[in-house]
Write a protein that binds this DNA or RNA. Structure first.
Lengths: 146, 146
DNA sequence: GGAACGTAAGTTGTACACAATTGAATTGCC
DNA sequence: GGCAATTCAATTGTGTACAACTTACGTTCC
């Protein structure tokens, strides 16, 4: 029944991680549908709601995404009229991403999302805390190993 | 400094999940490079190494992926001569995915991957166990909420 | 002040994910 | 038996991810 030493074991943690991440994205998908955002777009908006304007590189550092991902994503946010990209006057290489009024206004419509997600998670606050901490350690160790 | 009630809190667990998952995929990317596989392709091979042949739908159920993801992925595995797809004779709708000799042989080359990943994770066996369990509960709850 | 180096954002190409649709094959139910 | 409903895989279209490359701009250091 199966190959003698096929690495089944490893499916465990990494596959669990992969599955959980996709499941969370799926829940976000339904919640964010009425806002017209995807999960990565929502993450960018979260960063901008905290503090704006931000450079593309800055956004990339906060989210761990590179310009290959962010450039088209920001173009779509701009097409939705939620952000504006302006070439910096001092440094023409930089593009500052500003919120529009509509982008700022979306913040209040998104304010219920975290509670919905916490409810859908079905874990106690203690478990969520523990999970966040373990995932942080894991991410750091994985990055160090590269 | 920042919007009054922008939902920063929620970046925590879900963003941690998203980051950890991408970090794990990045480590797999370097490990699997010499095998010529991506992480999702490796997952499919793991399932096939366990038991073979499998239908596309079966693979999809094990991995939580649909035919829109699997069909092109399996085509690439076939182009690599690791699998063969054969229309079932009894039910012409079904496609059975078989391993080739090369596909079977790859199993031994992949046998070191789990250990490498466990080492890169930097977590104790107890933490990994706990993490796997919590992620399992989380994934189940998230799926139930849809 | 001009070449070498470095940095920022964008582009290209490959590979997932997933919703929605299609088309072929099977099953159920009259 | 025959047709509607279902099932299966593939396809289409959109949106990430990320490596590799390009282009434009700045900085340094002669």
């Amino acid at each position: 029944m199966g190959m003698p030493d096929a690495p089944r074991l490893d499916r465990q943690v990494c596959f669990a991680l992969y599955s959980a991440s996709r499941a969370a994205t799926a829940v976000y998908r339904t919640l964010l549908e009425e806002l017209g955002l995807t999960y990565p777009q929502y993450l960018v908006m979260l960063v901008l709601w905290e503090n704006e304007p931000r450079g593309v590189r800055e956004l990339g550092e906060e989210l761990g995404l590179d310009s290959g991902t962010l450039s088209p994503l920001l173009k779509r946010l701009e097409a939705l009229a939620l952000v504006e990209r302006r070439r910096s006057a001092e440094d023409e290489r930089r593009v500052a991403v500003h919120l529009t009024d509509a982008g700022r206004a979306l913040s209040s419509k998104a304010s219920g999302v975290p509670q919905h997600l916490a409810a859908a998670a079905g874990l106690s606050p203690r478990e969520l805390d523990q999970l966040r901490e373990t995932l942080g350690k894991l991410t750091a160790a994985l990055h160090d190993s590269l």
